[in-house]
């Protein structure tokens, strides 16, 4: 079940989200429980194929807890209520902890290594090993918690170290972000030092980026494409 949970998003869709993936991950437990009774097995699979969502790294918690509830012979309605209750918090918590924390922190560290001209394979290896160490630990912790706490995982999550870890990661992330900015603004990405006017404009871009956040992605992308077009068309004009 634990290994299957790595593929829980394999059939992600807009109607049931991770639903079919959850049923796929739970199948070994369901087969063990209802192996000889195909009608009950199909009914259990159909029950778990309904809408479900979670952060993929925390999904083993739901898989473990649901396997426990099925084993205890819990009522289908209770299991449905449990699924509905945990899917929100497993999604939000994972999004904050991983997508907005661990992942950008590891990536900023890797970007800093690139800008400091560390060998390509060291950058890639360090990023993959460090990131996935955290990734795997989280999955194992989540699965263990699901199996041992069953329906009590929600309470356990609220008491866990996750919020403190989020805070630590936001501090480390802000530091790393500050660290890479001077290196980027002075041209370390392409390996050539830039003249002062370029550095000044890059610093202004940094101020705008920090002020407006995500909303600068499209304007900056379009501006880059526009300048690229100008750089190509000038040859035809001049």
């Amino acid at each position: 079940m634990f290994l299957r949970s790595f593929a829980i998003q394999g059939s992600w869709n807009y109607r049931t989200l991770l639903g079919a993936g959850l049923a796929f991950a739970l199948l070994p437990a369901l087969r063990r429980l209802y192996g000889n009774d195909s009608a009950r097995l199909d009914a259990a699979v159909r029950r778990h194929s309904g809408i479900f969502n979670s952060h993929p790294y925390l999904s083993p918690m739901a898989v473990g807890a649901l396997a426990e509830l099925e084993e205890e012979g819990e009522d289908a309605a209770v299991i449905e209520r449990f699924k509905a209750a945990i899917r929100g918090s497993l999604g939000t918590l994972g999004d904050r902890l991983i997508w907005a924390g661990w992942r950008p922190v590891c990536l900023l560290f890797a970007i800093a290594l690139v800008l400091l001209q560390v060998r390509w394979w060291v950058v890639v290896a360090v990023f993959l090993v460090v990131y996935n160490a955290g990734h795997l630990l989280l999955r194992i912790w989540a699965y263990h918690l699901g199996l041992t706490r069953g329906r009590g995982v929600g309470e356990q999550l609220r008491r866990s170290w996750v919020p403190q870890l989020q805070r630590i990661m936001s501090v480390v992330g802000a530091f790393l972000l500050g660290l890479v900015l001077p290196l980027l603004a002075t041209g370390h990405l392409t390996g050539h030092r830039l003249a002062l006017p370029w550095v000044v404009v890059a610093a202004l871009a940094a101020v705008l980026g920090a002020r407006f956040g995500e909303s600068v992605r499209r304007p900056i992308g379009l501006a880059l494409a526009g300048f690229a077009l100008v750089g190509l068309l000038l040859k035809l004009v001049i």
């Binding site: 980027l184 603004a185 392409t190 550095v199 890059a202 101020v207 920090a210 900056i220």
Partner: peptide
């Protein structure tokens, strides 16, 4: 490239 990259990294703050 440097201007675009600097603006985009700062946008992660």
């Amino acid at each position: 490239l440097a201007i675009a990259a600097t603006g985009m990294v700062a946008a992660a703050l």
